[in-house]
Design a protein around this nucleic acid. Structure first.
Length: 113
DNA sequence: TCTTTGACGTACA
DNA sequence: GTGTACGCCAAAG
């Protein structure tokens, strides 16, 4: 992470906005990369971002460890999350990302490049 | 200041 | 696979 002293939610915004199209990440991976210490912080940050109407944050690409769309209910409307993922070529079945392990994206990819 | 809650994760039975 | 318990830390009441 190149950004310095930013609030934890700013870091989450940054990472989330950097998730490549057609890929997904998890709360745990982001929390671990940002050393937030808890995946709950990710959800909280995204909750704020969604509540404030930050449509620039592709929060729909962030799922839980199982690849489930755990936070779809927090979207407006909830079905938008799956619709957005589907529009990017991500198959969502029963609130879960198909081929999740293959589509999984880790924040470390940013450092590599 | 204390308590509750939360888009989670891991451990254990 | 399911259910329970705990940790994690910030925001809201």
């Amino acid at each position: 992470m190149i950004m310095k002293k930013e609030s934890y939610y700013d870091l989450v915004y940054y990472i989330t906005s950097k998730i490549p199209e057609g890929r997904v990440s998890t709360y745990g991976a982001i929390a671990d990369y940002l050393s937030l210490g808890s995946a709950r912080m990710i959800g909280w940050a995204l909750n704020q971002c969604n509540a404030t109407g930050n449509g620039d944050i592709p929060a729909h690409r962030v799922v839980n460890r199982k690849g489930e769309l755990s936070g779809r209910v927090h979207f407006n409307p909830p079905s938008k999350m799956q619709a957005s993922l589907g529009a990017e070529g991500i198959i969502v079945k029963d609130n879960r990302v198909e081929n999740f392990e293959d589509l999984f994206w880790h924040p470390e990819e940013l450092d590599d490049k």
